[in-house]
Simulated assay, not measured.
Amino acid sequence: MDPIHLFDLAAKQARWLSRSQATIAGNVSNANTPGYHAQTVQPFAEVLDQTQLGLLSTNVNHLNLTPAEQQAVAVKDQDPWETTDSGNTVSLENELIKAGDVQHDFAMNTNIVKAFHNMLMQSVKT
């Protein structure tokens, strides 16, 4: 049986979401650290843009393309909403919004994988 790329893609997104959640947690834990600059991860859409999916050649007349290596998720300083007198650029409101978005994306990722798994199980049973 050929590999199912949807599960691989969902796993990559889950790893990206984990890294994003860890970065948000680091920002929140350093909210009172003087001179700390808030960090953010590269958006998942950009990670996908850097990844080329390979095509499966089922006929000798098809083009044979090889997939590119997955780029690492880059962590960079984010543009500050505000900077305190101590030089800290963490905005707790911004971090809480991002944490909510990550939670929503985790739930959506899980639901898609569950639905696809159920669809596969139904196709195997029939």
Rank of each mutant, 00 (worst) to 15 (best):
S29Y: 04
F44G: 02
F44R: 00
S123D: 06
Q103T: 12
A72S: 14
V60T: 14
I97G: 06
A10V: 07
L17C: 02
W81G: 13
S29H: 05
F106Q: 06
Q21Y: 08
E69I: 13
E69G: 12
H104C: 05
T89V: 00
Q42D: 06
N88E: 02
D79C: 13
H104N: 08
Q103Y: 14
Q42R: 08
Q70I: 06
L92G: 09
K12H: 12
Q70R: 08
G100F: 07
I112V: 04
T66N: 08
M121L: 06
R19W: 05
T66S: 14
L17N: 05
D8F: 09
T66D: 10
N118F: 08
V90E: 00
I112F: 04
H117I: 04
T40Y: 03
Q50Y: 09
V28C: 01
S86L: 05
N111G: 10
N27D: 02
Q52K: 14
S57C: 11
L120G: 05
N88Q: 00
V113W: 04
S20Y: 07
Q70A: 13
T33I: 05
N32F: 03
I97V: 12
A25N: 12
Q70L: 11
N64D: 12
N109Q: 01
N61T: 11
N109S: 03
A107G: 08
N109L: 02
A74N: 04
L65Q: 12
Q70H: 08
A115G: 08
N61Y: 12
F106N: 07
N109M: 01
T23V: 09
M108H: 10
K76V: 13
L65R: 11
N32E: 06
V75P: 04
M121S: 10
F106W: 13
V90N: 00
D49E: 10
L55M: 13
T126Y: 09
